[in-house]
Amino acid sequence: MLTYDALRQAVPAPNGQIAWGSLLPMLPDVAALSVVPQDPVFHAEGNVLIHTQMVCEALVTLKPYQEADADRRFVLFYAALLHDIAKWSCTITDEHGRIRSPGHSKRGAVDTRILLWRAGVPFTLRERICRIILQHQTPFFAIKGSRSGDSAEFIVRKLSWEVNLLELAAVAEADILGRVCDDNADVLVNIELFRELAMEEGCFESPRAFPDPHTRLTYFRTSGGIAPDYPFHQEPGSLVTVLAGLPASGKNTWVDKYGGGLPVISFDDAREELGLKHGTSAGAAVHLAVDRAKELLRKKASFIWNATNISHLMRTKCLDLLLAYGAEVTIVYLESPEHTIKQRNNKRDTTLTNAAIDKMLHRWEVPLESEAHDVRYQA
């Protein structure tokens, strides 16, 4: 069984040797990357495992790794080691015969979250790793802006609320040094420009400053459509706490302890009221819950939204509704170990099975600080 202690002991010293002989048997999903091919145009070094090993070997020689404390070395090393872990499931050969791995960063962040959660890695360290993996390619092109038209400044400002940019840039640099490709020099320049821009914005190692949470959230949600350095007026609205977390992670207990008697919007309650089981006629329960939320929002009344909200897509639908009515939103994310969740679920009066919870893990995206006025973690 993979453990945090074993992972910690395997982290190499700066400029140290990586114990591949013991590390790969401990992480079979990484070892399996030896059979996953890569496009020789961008990865002439060979398969994904060869690339991964080259990335890690490059990382331990870099200044950010050499100057890091033990926690940061843990984060940087496992972000590098696991950054392409999802290529085994995402790699395809397209109609032109080119090898691609669409979506491997997003899938890799989720796969890593599950792996490290089960290993008992502390929440903060785990999420730092997952966030780097999610964005590990962004420094390659951010300085040129995004395909959707976002400026480099916007990308850096928002990203600084989601990931430590020093750590992200270090892994991105190692990623390029660990491949054989004609454009390596150009990409390394882009990464250095990304660093310089983050430093200019004052957000290389901490989130970019904003006048207040509402200005920050509005700036992010409008893709930089307002001035980031001047307060953006906020009309009074409902104060809404949105709970998020896997089933049986403690959301109902949180309501009982901290809810203060506020109204609670819950899909589970709506489903129970309608006499529905999990996975059947979910639309009717959602419709009922949303109608009740809208009624409270029109009254500018405070309430709690109690749902799993484990995927970014589902939270976005919820937040879009709340913010359209001018609500001020706090996300409270709760988490428990897997064995605790499944023991609790077995004892609950519910039609949701532990097998169904296992399937939900593959949509598990922990809320980011950029998503709401305030995001709090209880894990």
Rank of each mutant, 00 (worst) to 15 (best):
T3E: 06
Y4A: 05
L7T: 11
R8W: 14
Q9M: 12
A13D: 13
G16S: 03
W20P: 10
L27E: 07
V30D: 02
A31L: 14
A31P: 05
A31S: 14
A32K: 07
A32N: 09
L33H: 08
V36R: 05
Q38M: 11
Q38R: 15
A44H: 07
A44S: 10
N47E: 15
N47Y: 09
V48P: 13
V55E: 10
C56E: 03
L62E: 14
K63I: 03
P64S: 02
D69V: 06
D71I: 00
R73M: 00
L76M: 00
L76Q: 01
I85W: 10
A86E: 06
K87N: 04
K87F: 07
W88C: 08
C90Q: 13
D94W: 09
H96Y: 02
G97M: 05
P102R: 06
H104Q: 11
S105T: 11
R107S: 08
R107L: 15
V110E: 11
T112W: 10
T112E: 09
L116M: 15
L125V: 11
R128M: 15
R128L: 09
I129Q: 14
L134G: 10
Q135L: 10
T138V: 10
K144H: 10
K144N: 08
S146M: 01
R147T: 13
S151Q: 05
W161L: 01
L166W: 02
E167N: 05
A169P: 02
A170F: 01
V171D: 02
E173M: 01
A174I: 00
D175C: 04
I176W: 01
D182N: 06
V187Y: 02
I191Q: 04
L193H: 03
L197P: 02
E201V: 00
C203I: 03
S206E: 07
R208Y: 06
R208Q: 03
R208T: 02
A209Q: 02
P211W: 06
D212S: 00
D212F: 04
P213L: 05
R216N: 01
R216P: 01
L217A: 03
Y219A: 04
Y219T: 01
R221N: 10
G224C: 09
G225W: 08
P228D: 03
D229T: 05
E235F: 12
P236Y: 00
V240Q: 09
V242T: 10
G245Y: 13
A248I: 03
A248W: 12
S249L: 12
G250I: 14
T253C: 09
T253A: 14
W254P: 05
Y258I: 00
G259D: 07
G259K: 13
S266W: 14
A270R: 09
G279W: 04
T280Y: 07
A282M: 11
A284E: 11
L288D: 07
L288S: 08
V290Y: 13
R292S: 08
R292V: 02
R292Q: 14
K294H: 07
K299F: 09
A301M: 04
I304P: 06
S311E: 06
H312A: 10
T316H: 15
L319E: 11
L319D: 11
D320R: 11
E328W: 14
T330H: 15
E335F: 04
E335M: 07
D349L: 04
T351S: 13
N354K: 06
N354H: 10
N354Y: 08
A356T: 06
I357S: 09
K359V: 11
L361K: 14
E365T: 13
L368D: 11
L368H: 12
E369M: 12
V375L: 14
